[in-house]
């Protein structure tokens, strides 16, 4: 079965991103397909490669990146939500005159249409938030 995942909260403050990760991993391990993981609201903060959690804690951002690499996951960060919160890739940095980028590997920035498309193409859509 094809799943779409929506993550609406950032890492660490809420458990949402952890739950979404565990769900996504379990679905993949069961042989399901993840059409897309879409990050919206503060969920876009899961995509900054500048996080440095203590060594004995999980690295939520790296964990998503690794899962994306392992399963060729499509992880999309909403552009409008990202702009509000300072999540930047090279294209966005050029467009908005920013002097740095912070998008972690495996993530890409795109429009909200990607969320709707995930809803259309997936058999099930699951939301993780606060």
């Amino acid at each position: 079965m094809k799943f779409g995942i929506l993550v609406s909260e950032g890492p660490y403050t809420h458990q949402a991103s952890d739950s979404a990760y565990q769900f996504t991993k379990a679905a993949l391990e069961k042989g399901h397909e993840i059409f897309r993981v879409f990050f919206y609201h503060d969920g876009v903060n899961n995509a900054t490669r500048l996080t440095t959690p203590p060594q004995d804690d999980r690295n939520i951002v790296n964990r998503w990146s690794k899962l994306a690499e392992q399963y060729n996951l499509d992880m999309v960060v909403c552009v409008a939500a990202a702009q509000r919160r300072g999540i930047v890739d090279e294209g966005e940095a050029k467009r908005n005159g920013k002097d740095a980028t912070n998008l972690a590997p495996g993530f890409r920035i795109s429009g909200l249409g990607q969320l709707i498309e995930a809803g259309i193409q997936s058999d099930r859509m699951v939301t993780f938030g606060d």
């Binding site: 919206y40 609201h41 409008a80 429009g111 909200l112 249409g113 709707i116 809803g119």
Partner: peptide, 19 residues
């Protein structure tokens, strides 16, 4: 919280996709 505003943005996009 921002949810109401950002949810409206989703509504407009979903409408643009003629859903």
């Amino acid at each position: 919280t921002i949810y109401a505003l950002e949810s409206l943005e989703v509504v407009l996009i979903a409408a643009a996709f003629e859903q």
